[in-house]
Design a binder for these strands. Structure first.
Lengths: 213, 213
DNA sequence: TAGATTGTTAATCGATTAACAATC
DNA sequence: TAGATTGTTAATCGATTAACAATC
């Protein structure tokens, strides 16, 4: 299927990070080939769905044989934009912001926390050898200087909208928002919402139905 | 629509925490009535979708008038199982586990971190006045004693499956898994997966398409 | 060639939206 | 009653699955 300017099912894209992980593991185990059957089972989807998902991006397997692990790994990294390093700027150097800054899982996915920003002067300064908390007023300057791609919003709910607007003005093309509010931004800005409470509340709902309370 | 033993669209349930938040805010602002139009706009869904979602749980509004904020709030809390307090036991007192234990947003959603567990003896003991890290061997005993409902898995990937099995043996009906692996558990056990990297990688994908790299 | 497994089509399933009758 | 807004139906849209032809 030719690519062109089409966009792909949201649900498909959301499964690619899972495929990525499975393939990384196969690669570490020196497994060279996998079938859709085997990999689907590992990831928890149907073989049909796995093949369909991959087919949106071309003919990535070998009929009668399966998928070449390292080739597919490369393609999926490309699809997820991991062939180029993405730099994150975290706005809000509170508990959550600092916890994210210290998260070790980003690196292996081509992501790097390159700066933090805060309005509180007591927080300004180096965090470690590679990382510094800057005044929020330096957002635009540091975005350009450090080549930041994604603004991570970890400020309190009440400040999230204002901070989002600052990030847009500063030239960020994408926002990753941890504040539990809907952001009003121009349509060309990409926004990803992250909400820790949604998952556990749906669990709570199912628990209530299951236990009858 | 009568309830019976039917289950509701997953996507519908996932939107209820958003409705909950909007209603909580209206309530704080002493707003008594809202229309589906107004509330949908705030949450970022269509009015049709909001009304459809609510309609699965009965006739919760007043035709010609709108929805009574406090009544709807009560119903949604009920639907999400928030009428009863849910107690969480966090397995893995590492960085992530401790960060979750300190998260202040749980309380207002009827959730409470009531215990932590770890195999490392240097971590055992009180965290603060209300919270203690227990040896993992005490999982079953403390689950029963403290009335824990949900096991939160924050151990490294390699240990997640083993820990999940221990939690099931200990009698937990639900698991909230932060380790990036699929868990094999009996079908009656509820499992919710949480994966911080999925969101930002889909953002990275869209960014790659948007910027052409 | 025979066996295996992909890539793709068509059928099915589920979720969203638009429109409007019901009713406050 | 007239105006407003819900609850619900039917149409649309999108995603998943099953089946199989293509092909290694």
């Amino acid at each position: 299927m030719p690519e062109g300017l089409v966009s792909f099912p949201k649900a498909t894209i959301a499964r690619f990070p899972l495929y990525l992980r499975a393939l990384t593991e196969y690669s570490h185990q020196n497994i060279v080939l996998v079938s859709s059957e085997e990999m689907a089972q590992k990831v928890g989807v149907t073989p049909s769905q796995l093949r369909k998902d991959l087919s949106y991006f071309g003919s990535l397997g070998i009929r009668g044989t399966g998928y070449d692990v390292s080739y597919l790994l490369m393609k999926i990294k490309e699809i997820l934009g991991m062939d180029r390093k993405r730099r994150l700027g975290i706005i809000g150097a509170g508990k959550l912001g600092m916890a994210l800054a210290g998260y070790s899982g980003f690196q292996q996915h081509g992501l790097e926390v390159a700066a933090l920003f805060d309005t509180d002067p007591t927080k300004w300064g180096p965090v470690n050898a590679q990382l510094e908390v800057f005044p929020l007023t330096e957002l635009a300057a540091q975005r350009a200087k450090l080549g930041l791609d994604i603004a991570v919003i970890t400020v309190p709910k009440a400040e999230a909208q204002r901070v989002a607007e600052l990030a847009v003005e500063a030239g960020f093309p994408a926002l990753w928002n941890f504040a539990p509010v809907r952001l009003e931004v121009p349509p060309e800005i990409l926004v990803q919402y992250e909400d820790i409470v949604v998952g556990v509340l749906t669990l709570s709902h199912h628990l209530a139905r299951k236990l009858g309370s």
